[in-house]
Design a protein around this nucleic acid. Structure first.
Lengths: 144, 144
DNA sequence: TATTGTTATACTCTATAACTATA
DNA sequence: TATAGTTATAGAGTATAACAATA
C-alpha cells in the first residue's frame, strides 16, 4: 500500500481555520474577563489533576523552559498554581493547580460552553452529536 | 417564545477546543517557519482580495486600532502589506496585500492543507464533506 | 464634536544565551 | 558532563490614554 494521501480539501481547511479562530477568540475573551492570558488558561487546563515539572509543561505547551518559568511566575503570583519540591530530584519542581485555580478552571469550562452556544446553536442535537464524533476521531488520529 | 437555549454539550466543547488548539498549533508553526507571527498571517488572510482601513481591520481582528497600527507597521516593514491613501477620506488609510504577501498567503494555504492532513486523514471523503458542511453552518450562524 | 490613525507607555508572551545547582 | 530551572535581554502583541488631522 502507498503512503500517498490527498491533502485536506480546501473547503475543509478553511472551515477548520475559521472555527479555530472563533473558538480561540472565545477562549481569549473568556481569559481576559478573568484577567488571565490565553496561555495561562491553557496551562491550567493541561495541569488539571496532574502535577508536571517545568520541562514537562514546556513540552506539553510547545514552549521553551524559560518561557514556562516566567509563565508559572505570573500565574503563581495570581495564586492559581503552585511550585512544590520534587522529592525524586532536587533540581526539579512540580507545578500544580491551587484550589483557586481549580475554581477558575471549572468556571471557565462553563462559560466557554455558554459562549460556544453561539456556534453550536446552528446545529440540531443529532448533528451536534455527529460533529462531536468526527472531531473526536480527528483528535484521536492526530500524531499517527 | 423563550430565548432559552441549551448550552453546548460538554463533549462538543471539549472536541472543539482540542481541534482549535491543534489547528492553531499548525498555523503557529507554519507562520514561524516563514518568520511571521500568527496575527500577521491572520491579517493577510483577512485582507486577501480586500482593501480595508485600519479601523475595519481592527474590527475584523477583534483588536484595538492602536494594536493594528503597529501590526501593519511591522508587516509593512516585511513588505507583505501596503498603506495606500483613501481617496474618500483623508483621515483614513487603505491596507492591501502586496504581491509578496499574496505569494506568502498562497504558500501558506497549501502548507496548512498539508499539515491538517494529519487530522483529516482520519475521515473518509464523505465524512470530510459532512464535517465541512457542519463547520460552515456554525460559522455562518456565528454572531446571529 | 466625532472619527481616523498614530504615539507613548506598560504588561504579557516568547526565544536565545548564559548561569546555578544537582545528577 | 548533562539536565532542571532561572535570569537577562530583546522583540512581538496587546490595551489604555492622549494627541493631531480631518470630517
Amino acid at each position: 500500500m502507498s503512503t500517498d494521501r490527498a491533502s485536506a480539501p480546501p473547503a475543509l481547511v478553511e472551515a477548520l481555520g475559521a472555527v479555530a479562530f472563533e473558538v480561540m477568540g472565545s477562549l481569549t475573551k473568556l481569559a481576559a474577563k478573568h484577567d488571565l492570558s490565553l496561555t495561562q488558561l491553557r496551562m491550567l487546563g493541561i495541569l488539571r489533576d496532574r502535577r508536571l515539572t517545568i520541562s514537562e509543561l514546556a513540552r506539553a505547551l510547545g514552549l521553551d523552559r524559560s518561557s514556562v518559568s516566567g509563565l508559572v511566575d505570573r500565574t503563581e503570583r495570581r495564586g492559581l498554581v503552585r511550585r512544590e519540591p520534587n522529592p525524586a530530584d532536587a533540581r526539579s519542581v512540580h507545578v500544580t493547580v491551587s484550589p483557586a485555580g481549580a475554581d477558575a478552571l471549572a468556571l471557565g469550562a462553563a462559560e466557554l460552553a455558554e459562549r460556544l452556544t453561539a456556534l453550536t446553536d446552528a446545529l440540531r442535537p443529532s448533528e451536534a452529536d455527529r460533529l462531536t464524533v468526527l472531531l473526536e476521531r480527528m483528535i484521536e488520529h492526530r500524531g499517527l
